[in-house]
Write a protein that binds this DNA or RNA. Structure first.
Lengths: 208, 208
DNA sequence: GTTTGTGAATGAGTTCACAGCA
DNA sequence: TGCTGTGAACTCATTCACAAAC
């Protein structure tokens, strides 16, 4: 699925965290960082940090640590974050609107270049810097924009339909915010975030 | 931390998913459901479903399956979802506003009963059905409302301060949307959702 | 003395396989 | 025959421990 070495998904997630830590302004000025430093900021053991980083060949110097700039570049390349990734979003409701305007994506190198909805009331309205388009135009716009990632922010009952449309539009990655399982063809990577489930998991540990 | 048996966090997350599947309107009318049915809808193997459910004693009947209503009640009690859980949210920015108005929480038994911010421009404004209050009032309002869960939707630099305030206000669970590690005292459960990281993980698997 | 890279040991979680009940 | 409950086998990930490099 990827020219990168096969590493556990949990490790991929941690690598993204390391990169976030290294790009934090507070680290600026440092020449080197140690696995202990990264681990502390990321909430991970130093051993784990070294193991994760060693999946991609030697990058650190014993007794010194990792060269900051070099490591950032290395990680960014591995994670495909050395370029701006273009995403499109379907579902201009409450959550969709917030996601489009969420500055965190832009800061981390993602651009939501188009937003789609099926509701004529919403089509044509402004959302941040984009105009909501009819979902019929998805495939055409994906191609025009060279988008690679689709974000689903529609109700549960519509999410599979949207996912199918995304897959046949050529998108290779889908981030789904609807609380339902999504089937996608081989080669299309789906990741789901169920916001309510996060609260539910917390509830389990509550006393009483 | 909980009177419930100690089960892996991954299992807790799946239990929440099973409950979502069982409460789906499409299941209504059924008397029994099998582990195979649940597993199919949840994207999990039947073995895994049975293992997860068996952590809490026998609930299914061989040859028949699980009694639908009974299982829903059982899971809801285990997950503390047999009552409305009251949450408060700090950070009335883009993301915070969307979360307050997100209907998915209410549908799943959570009520965001108060919203706080530190910006005088935002304090006093309406957000859905609540009025934004100054974060100084957090502790008092948590007590008045009997809230148990805190949701953090502030910028990274402010999240630890907010978490500290939440912990000392008596909240026992925190859902953090700021992209940073949070330290909390023993007994306070923190869960972090980094929306940009989800996209980053997807980027790793992109071709090219 | 400090810190990396990595094989070995440990541990956690998932899948298997089957006995037992309907 | 269909389906659950569960110990055993297995897989996968993390932690340990130490040699080598600075």
């Amino acid at each position: 699925m990827s020219p990168n070495p096969v590493i556990p998904d949990s490790a991929v997630s941690r690598l993204a965290t390391y990169l976030r830590v290294l790009r934090d302004p507070r680290v600026e000025g440092r020449q080197h960082v140690s696995s202990a430093y990264i681990g502390d900021r990321a909430g991970v053991s130093p051993d784990q940090v070294r193991k994760d980083l060693s999946h991609f060949g030697e990058v650190g110097r014993p007794g010194v640590g990792y060269d900051l700039e070099h490591l950032i570049g290395h990680l960014a390349r591995i994670m495909r974050l050395d370029r701006v990734q273009t995403a499109v979003l379907v579902g201009a409701g409450n959550l969709g609107s917030a996601l489009v305007q969420y500055t965190g994506f832009g800061q981390r190198g993602f651009r939501i270049a188009a937003v789609f909805d099926i509701d004529p009331q919403r089509v044509g309205t402004n959302l941040g810097e984009v105009v909501v388009e009819h979902v019929d135009r998805l495939a055409q716009r994906v191609e025009e924009l060279g988008a690679t990632i689709g974000i689903i922010a529609v109700p549960r009952w519509a999410c599979q339909t949207v996912a199918d449309a995304m897959a046949s539009s050529g998108l290779r990655a889908i981030l789904n915010f609807a609380p339902a399982k999504i089937e996608a063809p081989e080669g299309v990577n789906v990741r789901s975030v169920d916001l309510a489930r996060e609260l539910e998991c917390l509830a389990y540990y509550l006393p009483g």
